[in-house]
Amino acid sequence: MAASKEALNALHTAIAEKLTESIEAMPAGEKGLAAILNVARQFVKDNGIEALPSPGSPMSKLTNKLSEYPFDPQGDSIN
């Protein structure tokens, strides 16, 4: 028996809300935060959410911070 569209929508909403609550409630540096952020990242990716950084936005701040750590795909690898 397949789940109804309404049930799946409710589950989707509950997951998004719980992830948001968990991230907001967890202090930076708390053990487990990285795992929750990774689940949230995958949830956003799986739902086709993309963002372009606009000046002053959190995405822009993250982009600027990441640019301080250049990545060389030829030299940087995880083995």
Rank of each mutant, 00 (worst) to 15 (best):
M1H: 12
A2M: 14
A2K: 15
A2L: 14
A2Q: 14
A3G: 10
S4M: 05
K5A: 15
E6C: 00
E6R: 10
A7E: 12
A7Y: 09
N9Q: 06
N9W: 02
A10Y: 02
L11I: 12
L11E: 14
L11S: 11
H12E: 11
T13W: 05
T13L: 08
T13F: 08
A14V: 00
I15S: 03
I15T: 15
A16G: 14
A16N: 13
A16R: 12
E17G: 03
E17T: 13
E17M: 06
L19T: 02
L19D: 02
L19R: 01
T20Y: 04
E21S: 15
S22T: 14
S22L: 13
S22Q: 12
I23D: 04
I23M: 11
I23V: 15
E24N: 14
E24F: 08
E24L: 15
A25S: 15
A25G: 10
A25H: 12
M26T: 14
P27V: 03
A28G: 11
A28R: 14
A28V: 15
G29D: 11
G29I: 07
E30N: 14
E30A: 15
E30S: 15
K31R: 13
G32S: 07
G32A: 09
G32W: 01
G32Y: 03
L33E: 06
L33S: 05
L33P: 01
A34L: 14
A35H: 10
I36M: 14
L37C: 10
L37D: 01
N38A: 09
N38R: 06
N38Q: 04
N38K: 06
N38I: 00
V39R: 12
V39P: 01
V39W: 02
A40L: 00
R41G: 06
R41C: 08
R41A: 15
Q42N: 04
Q42G: 00
Q42H: 03
F43W: 13
F43A: 03
F43D: 10
V44H: 05
V44E: 04
V44C: 08
V44Y: 01
D46T: 05
D46C: 02
D46H: 06
N47Q: 14
G48K: 10
G48Q: 09
I49W: 05
I49Q: 11
E50P: 00
E50D: 10
E50C: 04
E50H: 12
E50W: 07
A51F: 07
L52I: 08
S54A: 12
P55R: 11
P55W: 08
P55D: 13
G56H: 06
S57E: 07
S57R: 05
S57Q: 01
P58C: 06
P58E: 11
P58Q: 11
M59I: 09
M59D: 05
M59E: 14
S60F: 08
K61W: 02
L62Q: 07
L62Y: 08
N64V: 07
K65P: 01
K65C: 07
S67T: 01
S67Y: 02
S67F: 02
Y69A: 03
Y69S: 04
P70H: 08
P70D: 05
P70T: 12
F71E: 01
F71H: 09
F71M: 05
D72R: 02
D72I: 05
P73C: 05
P73D: 02
P73V: 04
Q74K: 15
D76S: 01
D76E: 04
D76T: 02
I78Y: 07
